[in-house]
């Protein structure tokens, strides 16, 4: 593994095959929990952790796992790791745990975790696999952070509300005037779909623009 390969994996996870806006996997937690920046980022961080750990573990054990029963074994490993994370959060980040509630166990059913384990980790070295899992999760983190921030800002006029449950001593920001009535649609699920749709459109636009510029750049380089 050289640095170019690591960079390629990172680019793949964060931009080219972004879980949230390209592969559109794991939308259930994405849309349900992204009502605020802190909620979105916390769940995404948990997902990053689970993806890195499960990918690393599967890659380390990949020669032991027979092809026929790989899926049950993968699910077993992912479920065990998520359960451990669930217990650890309940014990040491209890307030955050109360907010994220049922979405932590649901990481098991987030198909992106299984998809990366199956598509990448089962064929690569543990280090590369853990990096790939972490980067795929980071792609989700970026989308959830922006989506959560946007919905929180539009919906309730605050930003980083509830951050004191993670970092004691800090507090959220009141961006809009205190008498801002809030914009309900942004907080409800339809708002999540609308915001996500805008993201996908924006990303496609950037890609299309890059594709248009690319041939010109390539021919310019040839001369």
């Amino acid at each position: 593994m050289n640095s170019a390969e690591f960079r390629a994996i990172a680019e793949n996870g964060i931009w080219r095959q972004n879980t949230g806006i390209v592969q559109l996997l794991g939308l259930c937690p994405l849309l349900a929990i992204s009502t605020s920046f802190v909620n979105g980022v916390s769940l995404a961080l948990a997902t990053v952790l689970v993806m890195a750990m499960s990918s690393g573990a599967v890659a380390a054990l990949r020669t032991l796992i027979p092809y026929e029963i790989r899926i049950p074994v993968f699910i077993l490993i992912i479920a065990a790791l998520v359960t451990c994370l669930d217990l650890a959060m309940n014990a040491w980040l209890h307030e955050l745990y109360l907010v994220l509630g049922i979405f932590i166990p649901l990481i098991v059913t987030n198909c992106i975790v299984l998809a990366r384990v199956e598509a990448f980790a089962s064929k690569n070295t543990p280090l590369a696999a853990a990096w790939d899992g972490a980067m795929m999760g980071t792609g989700l983190l970026v989308v959830l952070a922006i989506l959560g921030g946007m919905r929180e800002l539009i919906g309730s006029g605050t930003l980083f509300a509830g951050i004191e449950t993670i970092i004691p001593g800090t507090h959220g920001l009141q961006i809009a005037p205190a008498d801002y009535p809030g914009f309900l649609v942004a907080i409800l699920p339809p708002g999540a779909f609308i915001c996500l749709g805008c993201f996908i459109a924006g990303r496609n636009w950037l890609d299309a623009r890059a594709a248009k510029h690319a041939p010109a750049a390539a021919s310019a380089a040839a001369h």
């Binding site: 032991l64 796992i65 027979p66 029963i69 049950p72 074994v73 077993l76 490993i77 479920a79 065990a80 359960t83 451990c84 217990l87 650890a88 309940n90 014990a91 040491w92």
Partner: peptide, 20 residues
Amino acid sequence: LLFGFALVCTALMAWIYGAT
């Protein structure tokens, strides 16, 4: 093998459960 994996995973969860 599946049984072995289940055993190891359960042991891990049991240990974390006890610790937390």
